[in-house]
Amino acid sequence: MQGASNAEFVQLYPHRGAVSHDMWHRIVDDATDAIDILVYSGLFLVDNRPDFTDVLAEKASNGVRVRLLFGDPDSAEVKRRSEEEGIGVDGLSGRIRITLSYIAKVVGTPGIEVRLHDTILYNSIYRSDTTMLVNPHVYGSGAPFNPVMHLQRVPGGRMFDHYQASFDRTWEAGKPLETAK
Rank of each mutant, 00 (worst) to 15 (best):
S5M: 15
S5K: 14
N6R: 15
E8A: 05
E8Y: 06
F9Q: 10
F9R: 11
V10W: 03
L12W: 09
Y13Q: 03
P14Y: 05
R16Y: 01
G17D: 01
G17M: 00
S20I: 10
H21E: 15
W24N: 11
W24S: 08
I27H: 10
D30G: 08
D30Q: 11
A31M: 08
T32A: 07
T32Y: 01
D33V: 04
A34C: 06
A34Y: 00
I35S: 02
I35V: 14
D36I: 02
D36K: 14
L38R: 04
V39L: 12
Y40L: 12
Y40D: 12
G42K: 11
G42H: 13
L43P: 08
D47W: 12
D47K: 15
R49P: 04
P50C: 07
P50K: 08
D51C: 04
D51K: 09
D51G: 07
T53S: 07
T53R: 01
V55Q: 12
V55K: 13
V55S: 08
L56Y: 08
E58W: 13
K59R: 14
A60L: 02
N62W: 02
G63V: 00
V64D: 00
V64I: 00
V64E: 00
R65W: 01
R65G: 02
V66L: 01
R67Q: 13
G71D: 04
P73C: 14
S75K: 02
A76V: 13
V78G: 00
V78H: 03
R80C: 10
R81M: 04
E83G: 03
E83L: 14
E83N: 07
E85N: 04
E85P: 03
I87S: 09
I87H: 06
V89A: 12
D90N: 13
D90R: 10
G91P: 07
G91W: 07
G91R: 06
L92A: 11
L92F: 13
L92W: 11
L92V: 14
S93Y: 04
I98K: 14
S101R: 12
Y102D: 09
Y102Q: 10
Y102K: 11
I103Y: 02
A104E: 15
T109A: 02
E113G: 06
E113Y: 03
L116M: 07
L116W: 07
L116Q: 06
H117Q: 05
T119G: 13
L121A: 01
Y122R: 15
N123Y: 03
S124M: 11
S124I: 03
I125G: 01
Y126S: 08
R127V: 07
S128V: 03
T130K: 15
T130A: 14
T131N: 14
V134C: 00
V134M: 00
N135R: 02
P136Y: 10
H137F: 11
V138W: 09
Y139K: 10
Y139I: 10
P144D: 00
V148N: 06
V148R: 07
M149P: 01
L151M: 06
V154I: 11
V154Q: 10
V154P: 13
P155C: 06
G156N: 13
R158I: 07
M159E: 05
M159N: 15
F160I: 02
H162C: 13
Y163R: 05
Y163M: 10
A165C: 02
A165G: 07
D168W: 01
D168C: 01
R169W: 02
R169A: 08
T170N: 09
T170L: 05
W171E: 08
W171L: 05
E172Q: 14
A173T: 05
K175D: 05
P176N: 12
P176K: 11
E178N: 08
E178I: 09
T179H: 12
